[in-house]
Amino acid sequence: MAEQVAFKRTSVLTDDYFHYCPGCTHGVAHRLVAEVIEEMGIQDRTIGVSPVGCSVLAYNYLDVDFVEAAHGRAPAVATGIRRTLPEDRYVFTYQGDGDLASIGMAEIIHAANRGEKITVIFINNAIYGMTGGQMAPTTLPGMRTTTSPNGRDTGLCGHPIRMCELLDTLVEPKFIARGSLSSPKLILKAKKLLRQAFDLQHSGFTFVELLSTCPTGWGLTPDNSLAWLERNMVPFFPMEVFREPGKMPPQATPYHPDLKVRDDAPKAEKKTEEG
């Protein structure tokens, strides 16, 4: 009987079993990244940078070279790799919301602002999963966590941070998009975003945020978690492509050779004496 593969586990995933809780969408995100790497045929040219958080062991599952970063520093580590290896390599970071939007805020903003040619995959599940469900920078107003037992008090700790919108104020990024892993349809869409980001990586900084679930941290069943995400997270974190080719960045400050203030600046134009 002739048959064709409708769906199969990609060979860029290792055979290891994920350590994630039942229903956690990290596994889906890992698989999408692996599928993109397989489709592009870049397994031998890809270097991943893993974060601190639930996905700290990402290198166990994605069968590519990996460097482990300190908490929040993945974009800096990726910068070091990117600026070192030949241009045909693909470098990505995989970071959660605590790692990227709290402790690593400086690193992500500046890597984006420099236009580092990397892809950042941002898993936003509005909670610290690995440490046991504490409040994250993306925790929704009123959302209960183990460190906001009465719900996030925005008067006390501010509103959640929208990373895509924040990065979209910068000139350099080439691709910024937010997707969701809350249904098969959105998962397929998310994969397209990841593919776009990897395709554009060699032109500049690319960023994909994936709204994700944490059934354990949220205290919900896996299916209720997906519904909760769509009902509560999507309105606050809209699924949009914020930046892509054709979508213009905010106007860049024009480059003025005259702005060189140092007499010994290389190739400083000598101004003709006037008066």
């Binding site: 009987m1 002739a2 048959e3 064709q4 593969v5 409708a6 769906f7 199969k8 586990r9 995933l13 079993y17 994920f18 994630y20 229903g23 956690c24 969408t25 990290h26 596994g27 889906v28 698989r31 249904s183 098969p184 998962i187 397929l188």
Partner: peptide
């Protein structure tokens, strides 16, 4: 297969 977080499914079409 698309939604499975564990990658434990494979689907073949005749």
């Amino acid at each position: 297969g698309v939604i499975c977080p564990e990658g434990s499914l494979a689907v073949y079409k005749e």
